[in-house]
Write a protein that binds this DNA or RNA. Structure first.
Lengths: 236, 236
DNA sequence: TCCTATCTTTAGGCTAATCTAAATTTGGAT
DNA sequence: ATCCAAATTTAGATTAGCCTAAAGATAGGA
């Protein structure tokens, strides 16, 4: 039997520095909106010409890391998201370590981590994480994905469902950053950072009636369990 | 004035991983003999085809890192030697650090350092060296070039000139690894590791009469000041 | 001296990642 | 409903590193 082109579900064949950078950029650019990322936006972020990004996206689509709809943007596949999260974990662990263990000044750690994130082995990643005590956040307060690539639950965050009637909070994120959910919410003007207030709910597990930035929505089911909220923030 | 192709004596324009590997390989291969390195020998060391090495050597010659005499081998220029020593310093500092600070097992540090040596910044290099207390040797006992890229003087080593008449010692190296000197010596069968015995000397700063592996040589001038010897070693 | 085995270089090609310039598509404004 | 500006893709080229196959140089032995 000829070896499958697809390499079914094996090791994600070490991505190059460029590939990892594209995955990371697509991840962060689509994180807020949940919507696909435009080619020019991505190219600008990476400091390359738009045509370069197009070419790379075709390649990434070919190896199954992204879903590229020509003229309509790109989004990560689950495999692509794993690449992105792995790099982000490396980056934030390195920033933490360089700052904490080596006393590297704040304004330098990012630049250094930006390079090294692509080259440390999984074993070194683990040693660094262990030395730091499996930190959940980096020195900038950004959450560090765990070894399983899941983000830590935010301290003090609860599912939207857990709010009392009349209680106010800030919508922070969807717990496993499901992009379909994020897109659905974004279409209704509900974005991370939005102020929410539970006006009431239907009994027997029915929907919550939630006021978001002045507009009322009925949200229920899986959605209100995955949406995380925390105490209302001050303007930042 | 058009910008010079040569970039007179500025920063040695960050070498790629491949370039650094070639420089390091040429350095270590020519270190013992002092003679130019053959293309195949180099290619084998780097795990590339000989034709690949030829092409790279032409490029390295062009940018002034090596002196490549077609069909007669290659040697490092002073600029190339700086590249090699910088990488070796990175490598040995990393090995030391990974082992001492992160408890990485011995058999893994080499592999990890082999990659990272090309990517740490000068600033991180300095932080690591400082954290380790500016070590002069790595965990394998190999000497670490200092920030000035000079190797530390070996403890207990002296210039050949300092030996008493009749004293026996082991020739270890030429103090700044001048390849012309090494070649000159190699042509006479005098190599690092050789047992030497001073049989006598001419007065008034004249040459020393030295027996090396049975043959007698008259060595003087700069040579006997640069040649370092240490207490005779046991067979290894 | 000459011949051949070995080493080295040349020739021609490939992939990854980038560029510029020229199509092409899309979607909003008239 | 059409058109145009902006976004995107295609086309064609470049550079770094690598490969294989073929041609050329060197040097040691007969």
């Amino acid at each position: 039997m000829p070896p499958s082109t697809h390499a079914r579900h094996e090791k994600p064949a070490a991505a190059s520095e460029a590939i990892e950078d594209y995955a990371k950029a697509i991840y962060t650019l689509s994180r807020r909106s949940g919507a696909p990322v435009g080619t020019s936006e991505l190219a600008a972020r990476l400091g390359v010409a738009p045509a370069t990004a197009t070419a790379m996206l075709k390649r990434l689509d070919g190896i199954g890391l992204v879903d590229h709809q020509p003229y309509h943007g790109v989004s990560l596949t689950p495999a692509g998201e794993r690449v992105a999260l792995e790099v982000i974990r490396h980056h934030r662990l390195l920033e933490s370590y360089l700052s904490a263990a080596l006393g590297m000044p704040w304004d330098r750690v990012h630049e250094e981590a930006e390079v090294l994130e692509h080259y440390i082995s999984e074993e070194l990643e683990e040693l660094i994480a262990a030395k730091l005590g499996e930190p959940s956040h980096d020195p900038h307060g950004d959450p560090i994905p765990g070894p399983d690539l899941e983000f830590p639950e935010e301290a003090g965050s609860r599912p939207l469902e857990a709010l009392e009637d009349g209680e106010t909070a800030t919508f922070t994120r969807v717990s496993d950053s499901d992009s379909q959910m994020l897109r659905y919410l974004a279409e209704r003007g509900i974005r991370p950072g939005a102020h929410v207030m539970v006006k009431g709910r239907q009994p027997f597990g029915g929907p919550l009636f939630v006021e978001v930035d002045g507009a009322e929505h009925a949200l229920g089911g899986e959605l209100v369990r995955r949406m995380r909220v925390s105490a209302a923030e001050q303007a930042r």
